[in-house]
Design a protein around this nucleic acid. Structure first.
Length: 731
DNA sequence: TCGCGCTGTCATAGC
DNA sequence: GTGCTATGACAGCGC
């Protein structure tokens, strides 16, 4: 009683001051009433835990809201009521859930740790009504299984070797990455990820974590060691996570929480996903904002919101409350706050627990502040000394969780697939290119670029060096509308008047640009490569001297060169037209509408050979433009597909992040269910006051929200039925 | 000389 | 049936 009194006067006062310092108004009287039993228990201690509760009476009432007429243990009554309320609330599964409680029970080392960390309780949330009890021997809320379990930790090999000189008693194997506690390190990671996220969502979320996963290596979050990943064949469920009675005592003694148990491998998928999710944590915040707001809006009287503190501004995945409490004799000090914590805003630092500095750059280096429950209480290490915890306890969420965990496997694949680094991405891209024969980025390939540049320049020079008449005609023609899709002959009169000769596809409407301007060419990446001059040679005799530049401007040698050059600019059909003395231009032949074209033909007396050539020129010209349009469309299609692929990749990454968040919430729910289940089950007593054997009995959640204690065999049968249902549905 | 990309042309189908 | 368009296939050309 002396310690309790001391606690009430000192601890509560300190806590109130603390809360007031962080801006939370505290009405102590309210918390001391029985209206808020959890805090009351926190403050007053687990008196009910030490009491032989007639829980069967509670069970007999089903709803647990009745008080046994012979029992005046109100403390017990409120505890049971709270627990059952929590269990029922959990039974109404909500996805995503937002909060997980981790009651950090630690002992204030005599004059050492807590003394140097006076603000260790800064992580408390206002709504939780948490109490940072600094008294060495106070009545901290603890179950009978919690009691004293931490005292043996250091003696049971749970103490990790110190990483740095700063680590002393904090160097306990917490089952969590060092970076969880290394605020500076994590802050650096978050900054980097923020930058990456700002720069682009892709290839950032998985980063090094996925890279490490891709290497099939797991990195111990505490030691930084890498070792080959060994994925468990089975996925854990709550039932499996319940500690086995045959579990080695040493393993059980590694427990950090007697409430969270499991047989899962410490390096199982969850742990790996922990790594991955932590990496993606920053990017996922935006996704969770809305959901968290909804979940945080629980009424004050809600058991969940009351007993499990909720950080209003904390995303789902980060809503892990650390109920900082002090426990005399508890050695696994989570009093790991470094002075850096003090500078943290309360809202954001509520879940941060910087530990000793670490030089780790391993996969787990991005461990955030989340999932502390899972970190602190790795399932396998969370065996329990609670004799009421059996090897197999029913899994109220087993099916769902199993399914979710199974998804994690595929998710792992996705993560590995998604998370390749740029080098891998380029390799994959090369593979795709080589396989498909289509480069998604062909327009940017160096070869294409250089080719286009050279081609454009050559085309430019050829165009400029052409005769003024043809050049102007071609230019004017190129200014017309798109070719192929529509026929436009507005400038035909001009061309005809100028006596333009030669159809130059480079100046077609399709191009809508004269290749004299490379800048215009660069505006259309897919046309960068268009610029080759594929006019075909013709005999020099076919040259028309009228097209040559003034003789004064050129020497004889250059004249010949010029003639050859101009000759090369003419297409075969142009040469044929010249040879056949076709009286109008190829442009007219090709682009005139049928009616006008026929009208034009009727104006001239043309031989059969000339008419045949004209029709061939028209056919080939149209087909050429059609081919150009076709290729343009093909390129556009490829480019659009490329954009679609990028969009889909972004969507995929986003959905993957969301899924990861949901899985994280599921795991947190699972852990909470484990905790509550074992706590409730451990308190159950039969008529003789003996605990129920978990191997013979199990708690069953009824559809109406009630909790039943049923024989294990019956529970197993029901579990099998539930397993069959999904299978039948799939069939 | 070879490979590659661009272009023109042909054949064909569809409208 | 004709004309036009779209497209695959092929070949020529330049780099």
């Amino acid at each position: 009683m002396l310690s309790l009194k001391k606690y009430l006067t000192e601890g509560l006062l300190q806590f109130t001051i603390l809360l007031s310092l962080i801006g939370v108004r505290v009405d102590v009287d309210t918390y001391l009433t029985s209206q808020l039993p959890p805090l009351r228990e926190i403050i007053l201690g687990p008196s009910s835990a030490y009491t032989q509760t007639q829980f069967h009476n509670l069970r007999n009432t089903l709803d647990g809201y009745g008080i046994h007429p012979k029992s005046i243990d109100l403390d017990n009554y409120f505890t049971a009521r709270r627990l059952l309320s929590q269990v029922r609330a959990l039974d109404r599964f909500q996805v995503p859930t937002t909060e997980v409680n981790a009651w950090l029970v630690h002992r204030d080392p005599e004059g050492s740790v807590s003394g140097s960390q006076p603000n260790s309780g800064l992580a408390l949330e206002s709504s939780s009504g948490l109490q940072d009890v600094t008294g060495p021997d106070n009545g901290v809320r603890e179950s009978e299984t919690e009691q004293g379990f931490g005292e043996d930790l250091e003696d049971l090999g749970a103490v990790a070797p110190p990483v740095s000189g700063d680590l002393t008693k904090e160097d306990i194997d917490l089952g969590a990455g060092r970076e969880v506690f290394d605020y500076s390190h994590r802050q650096k990671e978050q900054d980097v990820e923020k930058e990456l996220r700002d720069g682009g969502e892709q290839d950032t979320w998985a980063g090094e974590g996925a890279e490490a996963l891709a290497r099939n290596l797991l990195v111990d979050g505490e030691t930084g060691e890498s070792f080959p990943a060994q994925f468990p064949a089975d996925i854990s469920s709550i039932t499996e996570a319940v500690p086995s009675e045959s579990e080695p005592p040493a393993l059980q003694n590694n427990l950090l929480s007697p409430l969270l148990t499991g047989t899962e491998s410490p390096f199982d998928l969850e742990q790996q996903w922990q790594d991955l999710m932590s990496i993606m944590e920053m990017q996922a915040m935006e996704v969770n904002t809305s959901a968290s707001e909804i979940l945080y809006s629980a009424p004050p009287g809600d058991p969940l919101s009351t007993n499990y503190s909720l950080a209003p501004n904390t995303p789902i995945n980060q809503n892990v409350s650390l109920h900082q409490a002090s426990l005399g004799g508890c050695s696994q000090d989570f009093l790991l706050f470094s002075p850096e914590v003090e500078s943290l805003p309360v809202a954001s630092s509520s879940t941060l627990l910087p530990l000793a500095p670490s030089n780790s750059t391993s996969l787990n280096s991005t461990f955030g502040s989340t999932n502390l429950t899972g970190l602190f209480f790795p399932p396998q290490l969370n065996g329990t000394a609670n004799d009421t915890a059996g090897p197999e306890l029913p899994d109220p969420l087993g099916g769902l969780l199993d399914e979710a965990m199974l998804d994690e496997i595929s998710l792992m694949d996705l993560a590995i697939e998604e998370g390749f680094n740029p080098v891998q991405a380029s390799q994959l891209e090369e593979e795709f290119d080589s396989d498909s024969g289509l480069s998604l980025d062909s327009s940017h390939s160096p070869s294409s670029l250089s080719s286009s540049e050279g081609s454009s320049s050559s085309s430019s020079s050829s165009s400029s060096s052409s005769s003024s008449a043809s050049s102007s005609a071609s230019s004017s023609f190129s200014e017309e509308g798109a070719v192929g899709y529509s026929s436009d002959s507005e400038t035909l009169d001009l061309e005809e008047a100028e006596g333009a000769v030669g159809y130059q596809p480079e100046y077609s409407k399709f191009c809508r640009m004269s290749y004299q301007d490379p800048a215009q060419l660069s505006c259309l990446p897919y046309l960068e490569h268009v610029g080759h001059n594929h006019t075909y040679n013709m005999a020099p005799s076919a040259l028309d001297s009228a097209d040559l530049p003034p003789p004064s401007a050129l020497k004889k040698g250059s004249k010949e060169k010029q003639a050859d050059f101009l000759d090369k600019q003419m297409s075969r059909d142009e040469h044929r037209a010249r040879a056949m003395k076709i009286p109008f231009t190829n442009d007219k032949i090709i682009n005139l509408p049928v009616e006008e074209f026929n009208e034009l033909l009727s104006k001239y007396q043309l031989s059969e050979a000339q008419l045949s050539l004209i029709r061939d020129i028209r056919r080939r010209g149209k087909n050429k433009m059609a081919a150009q349009n076709c290729r343009k469309r093909k390129l556009d299609t490829i480019l659009n597909l490329e954009r679609d692929v990028e969009d889909l990749q972004r969507d995929k990454a986003r959905l993957l992040r969301e899924k990861v968040e949901f899985l994280r919430s599921l795991r947190q729910m699972k852990q909470k269910v484990q905790s509550l289940y074992q706590e409730v089950f451990g308190r159950l007593r039969d008529e003789n006051g003996r605990p129920y054997s978990p191997s013979q009995y199990a708690l069953q959640y009824a559809g109406d929200g009630s909790v039943l204690l049923i024989p294990r065999t019956m529970a197993d049968q029901q579990a099998r039925r539930q397993e069959r249902k999904p299978k039948d549905r799939r069939k």
